[in-house]
């Protein structure tokens, strides 16, 4: 069950945890956001292996954020882990429901239909004046196992939770990808008809993976909501989805390292560009991404040695 790759994952997590106490607040937020986006990318990895790219994953990210926010405001749940669970379940359930319809679609129509749903959610949230419309509402600092958290220590704890969760979920995804079910994704991408002749049902597999990717995005949204302390409909806007797709494509379909690495690189480039050129940061971001697409056709995961890529 445990492989060298898993040990590597655990080691990376341990390094990040050890570094926690050294990192200033801004870096904690930056790194935790990157990890959370990496979690979304892990979900996209499942779908991309089957050749599907949803252009509306921000819907689940946004749902997760709102679920965490409303869970603490309306239901009085304050514990980080419970809120994450709630957000994951809510987004996963939404993914399952939407998946009932969307599992029949492929290619660009899959992408656009998922975007349509996410934009409908965006529109509904914009019209929800009680939830603050485009301004959103603030999410109170959560507690962890009964402990109240404030200030920078709270960030450290949230960051540590994010790291542990990322390691856990990445391990889960890579373990899934090694199972027989997990191997069917690429087969669907190559030839769906043959897969169904083999006795598998591509629609059902895609449905399951879509719901799972929704769950992952929901967890990520909840993490970011608690980290930032605010949710707003912009989390569900198509530009957010575009960013996730960008991370996923940058990552390639080789495995979890690509997804996590791509999320980190995007956040870092974004942050540096923001500092260096406050007016023209898009130019730097776009230029970097264009060069990466042109130079690394199979995504970042193609850079890793063969051994790692299988992880």
């Amino acid at each position: 069950m445990f492989r060298r790759a898993d040990l590597r994952l655990a080691a990376a997590g341990a390094v990040l945890l050890a570094a926690t106490s050294l990192m200033p607040g801004w870096l904690l937020v930056l790194a935790a956001t990157a990890l959370a986006k990496g979690i979304v990318a892990l979900g996209l990895l499942l779908l991309m292996r089957a050749g599907l790219v949803p252009f509306g994953q921000a819907m689940f990210y946004c749902l997760g954020g709102y679920a965490a926010g409303l869970g603490s405001l309306w239901l009085g749940i304050r514990d980080v882990l419970l809120l994450l669970l709630l957000a994951g379940l809510a987004a996963g359930a939404a993914g399952w429901v939407v998946g009932l319809l969307i599992r029949r679609y492929r290619g660009i129509f899959f992408a656009m239909l998922s975007m349509a749903f996410s934009m409908i959610l965006y529109g509904v949230l914009l019209k929800s004046q009680d939830l603050g419309s485009s301004d959103g509402f603030s999410v109170p600092r959560p507690t962890l196992l009964g402990l109240t958290m404030t200030g920078t220590p709270a960030l450290r704890i949230l960051f540590a939770v994010t790291v542990l969760l990322t390691v856990l979920l990445a391990w889960g995804v890579s373990a899934y990808l090694r199972t027989a079910m997990g191997q069917i994704g690429p087969a669907i991408r190559q030839n769906e008809v043959r897969v169904s002749y083999l006795g598998y049902e591509p629609d059902r597999l895609i449905h399951r993976e879509y719901a799972a990717s929704g769950l992952l995005a929901g967890v990520a949204g909840a993490l970011v909501a608690m980290l930032v302390g605010q949710v707003d409909p912009g989390m569900g806007f198509w530009m957010t989805s575009g960013e996730f797709v960008f991370i996923a494509i940058l990552a390639g379909t080789g495995g979890i390292w690509g997804s996590l690495g791509a999320a980190f690189i995007l956040e870092a480039v974004h942050a540096i560009a923001f500092d260096v050129a406050p007016t023209y940061w898009r130019l730097i971001l776009g230029g970097t991404l264009l060069v990466m697409i042109l130079r690394f056709p199979a995504g970042l995961s193609s850079l890793a040695p063969r051994r790692v890529r299988r992880a």
């Binding site: 797709v245 494509i249 007016t279 898009r282 130019l283 971001l285 776009g286 991404l289 264009l290 042109l294």
Partner: peptide
Amino acid sequence: RDEVSVALATYALLLILDDVML
């Protein structure tokens, strides 16, 4: 290259052209 990568490259162009116009 696959359709999605090309679409993404045009997204990079969107970012670049936005700033060129600016």
